[in-house]
Amino acid sequence: MISRVAQSCFWLTRYLERVDALARLLDVHHALHIDAAAAATTRWRPVLRATGQEASFVERLGDAAVHDGEAVEGFVTWDADDAASLWRAVGAARENARTVRDVMSLEAWEAINDLWLWINRPAARRLFEKNRGSFYEHLIQSTVLFHGVSHGTMLHDEPFTFMKLGRAVERAAQTARILDAHVAQDAGPEGGAADASRWLSALRSCCAYDPFFRGASHALHQTSVARFLVFDQSFPRSVLYNLDETRTLLRGLRKNDPFGLPRRSRTALERARGELLQMDMADVERRGLHSTLNFVIRATDHLCDAIRDDYLEPPQAWLRHCVRVLESLERAPEAERAA
């Protein structure tokens, strides 16, 4: 498929995954309002860090506003100038979809276009004011709907593969960011009410509340939560699960390579995944969870760059080189006949 089209497919789901992650994160933190154990003074700055908007928020609204949940939610959700806002992410997902409308199913396109039309209606603003939980819920359900509809109606060929790839790498990074935001919270002594509250919030933000407690460990502390969100290979939002998924997808793509091309993305993925597989929780504690998560975030960034160079924006010089190889292959049989 055309590289630029693959790129839009890849980014379309990355943006959607971002919408999903932001909506969950805000929803969980909004609900914590009524939870006395979580102090407002430490709650919102990590959210802004996780979304990557701390600097632009402080510049626009001042540092004091960081403790004002309403200001943070309004900014993260609606800000039209900050490319990282929810509204902008929905717009970017939809614009990428519009660009590659020709490779999507009607149903998949409508799922994403409906979300864009909805968020631009006054009714969505009113819902945000009157019933915040329902607002976030609608966003989350819309992204889930998109994944279901695209899975059920699109050809499972290359465009769909790049959509899944975008979702997998973004999900790995988002889970790491969300968990990191909770690590950064000041929550009093380990095992205290505030500490428990922050780990519950981390689990809820990753949709992991029930799955976590169904697993073997019922003890709620940093190590058990980190083990689950980073290393569990059956939980679909864990870091490792998504690196496994990425690995399967990249393998499938390489099957179609015309002449054994070297692929940087393979090396980048194997290196990151290999390193995580070798770690145990003692290593994580030694290294510090924050720096482990940072490693994950940097590794996924690096992986995305490699995918870009391999598939999405291959360098011109490399393409022209391939043409010459193809032409020599084409000429080879002729030369044989002549001889």
Binding site: I2, F162, D257, P314, V323
Partner: peptide, 17 residues
């Protein structure tokens, strides 16, 4: 998405030209 090499037109794809 297209380029010309020796008077032939190629598309830039995920599987090369």
């Amino acid at each position: 998405d297209l380029f010309v090499e020796r008077d032939r037109v190629y598309a830039c794809t995920t599987r090369g030209p």
